[in-house]
Design a binder for these strands. Structure first.
Lengths: 338, 338
DNA sequence: TTGTAGGCGTTATCAT
DNA sequence: ATGATAACGCCTACAA
């Protein structure tokens, strides 16, 4: 930068001003500076910039290293978030964290990270508390139990569930079961997506004829096959299933088939909050409510950067995005007498 | 750090020395310093450190934003690489890049990134040339056509293919076909995994009885179903298929089923360089050669960091890892008379 | 073994 | 509109 200043015959300050548009610069000098920059192939040193400005323009996305989803949604999310960050002049660092404890302190305390994107948040998440205490700016992908004062971007499970039931209803289904996921059994009661989905399902079904039948199973195809049996046992005449368990959805379909039920002729299956790539791999292909991974990534970054740049005008940004219906071959009008 | 020095009654230099083990420090003073650090909850500023030492301890993983695989392998890779980086005191930033062109210059020129991990490299990759020109330290996940002078970590497709054929041979199969993947048609001839796999397949089959039958199709289940027909047409009496196309493998199985061939009774299918999570979602579950995503991530980072820290003793690090066989339900002994 | 002091390359304040 | 210059917080010869 000194070299640029010398070549353009101005001071380093002026170079900085034109580079950042931080102060008015005469068109003539600006041109000289830009020419010099071009001639020298100059790139400003981001590290020095970060030190002087006390802002590194680096974001971190925190996600649980174990117990993660393998679906295309995660990759979509990462990619989208990284791209949006890049567009806004930021970089995105990946931080898989094992325990729920305080190794996130290392990141932010080091000054390398301006803000944090928190994934797979629990309803009562110790990491949120920790981030609040250290005063680290952060945005949540998901929602805690009381998210009113927090910045978050989440899937609108309530709307999505309503739309799923509505869709099946329009096909004539009344006996609609719900299958959710679990990892071990501990997370069940504290995992927002499951809790909200089950609550909404229960509430809507209560206003209708059919019984509410919910079960949950591990996130594996094998568990899904097993779930099919349990489902038939619990509700022999069901005609439709909503599954929020990407892996189990596959097992469910083959489980039903093994039990002599055809999908979709006898039983319709809809995979909720899944990815299109996954759903297409099933045979028959699954009708799904596609998780908005790309949008979540983009809007999560937007929300965080807004906050970092003091643009979070009125309070905290809070966004809810519904999944979008993609029709596959796993749903059909209810059979006669069903 | 000034505060720490004052509290411990030493100079800032001494604090730095004990923090970095960069010069011998008397046990007594070291203890005082560490106590002071604890008392003050001091964290050294990584940005300042980076500026002064000219090393940011930040790595970037470059991967094509579009045209990416959705399998669990990518997530495994990212997670493993990020964790290993963290263990070594580095951070990993995610850089999806669109065009093959020079936006990677921005990254490295800014001084924010010490080194680069290059994914999904083509046999003749312009990015490699670019990185060489700018003198950016980098390690490749994959191999170029002439990788002798480069640092790389790649799947050993040759060994994996040999093992796959061997496995099927031992089950009595002789008529073994190969299905590879393609995105559009452009990448086919310049994509290392496909080229090496096909070459090895061809070479091995040439030494055996059975004809070599290779086809390729897009990375979608639908294309896989179509491929099943083409395969039967080309080789009506085949008894086994090796698929290096995770998505198409699913379509292949259902395609065969639709054509009246049972898997594995009539035709065995083995999915090469896939992820266990994916393969388990098939019904029947797929026998696979599991891609070593975790190992690739770890070793890729190791290779790069070795290079950065001048520890790349004798020339460039070059690692080849074979996929490991995981038996599923999609392979069986060849049927009588097959 | 420890201290002193000069950078590292920008930003930002205060003059001019 | 532009220029000097003091931070920014740490590392690292060089001295002691």
């Amino acid at each position: 930068m000194r070299d640029v200043a010398r070549l353009a015959d101005v001071s380093v300050a002026t170079v900085s001003f034109t580079l950042n548009n931080t102060k008015p610069v005469a068109p003539a000098t600006r041109e000289r500076v830009e020419q010099a920059i071009r001639d020298l192939g100059f790139r400003r040193n981001e590290v020095a910039r970060a030190l002087a400005s006390k802002r590194s323009r680096v974001l971190a996305v925190l996600y649980p290293a174990l117990q993660h989803r393998f679906g295309g949604t995660v990759v979509h999310f990462f990619t989208s978030a990284a791209r949006r960050a890049s567009e806004l002049g930021y970089n995105l660092i990946l931080s898989p964290i094992d325990n729920d404890a305080g190794q996130l302190g290392d990141l932010t305390a080091g000054g390398l990270v301006d803000g944090v994107l928190l994934m797979e948040v629990q309803l009562d998440d110790p990491r949120v508390t920790s981030l609040l205490q250290t005063g680290t700016p952060f945005a949540i992908i998901g929602r805690t139990r009381e998210p009113d004062l927090l910045t978050y971007v989440d899937i609108d499970f309530e709307t999505t569930m309503a739309a799923s039931i509505e869709y099946l209803s329009n096909l004539g289904h009344t006996r609609i079961a719900l299958v959710t996921g679990s990892v071990g059994s501990s997370l069940l009661t504290d995992y927002g997506p499951v809790v909200r989905t089950e609550a909404t399902y229960g509430a809507i079904m209560a206003t209708r004829d059919g019984d509410a039948v919910m079960i949950s199973c591990d996130e594996t195809p094998a568990a899904g096959r097993d779930a099919a049996s349990r489902l038939i046992e619990a509700s022999p005449d069901l005609t439709a299933v909503i599954v929020m368990n990407e892996q189990a959805a596959f097992g469910l379909v083959s489980g039903f088939r093994n039990l002599g039920f055809r999908v979709p002729e006898d039983i319709s299956v809809i995979s909720m909050s899944s990815s299109a790539e996954m759903a297409a791999m099933s045979d028959p292909t699954l009708t799904l409510m596609a998780a908005p991974g790309v949008e979540l990534g983009r809007m999560g970054v937007d929300a965080l950067v807004d906050k970092l740049e003091g643009r979070a005008a009125n309070g905290e940004t809070q966004v809810l995005l519904p999944c979008v219906l993609v029709e596959g071959e796993s749903t059909a009008r209810v059979r006669e007498g069903g």
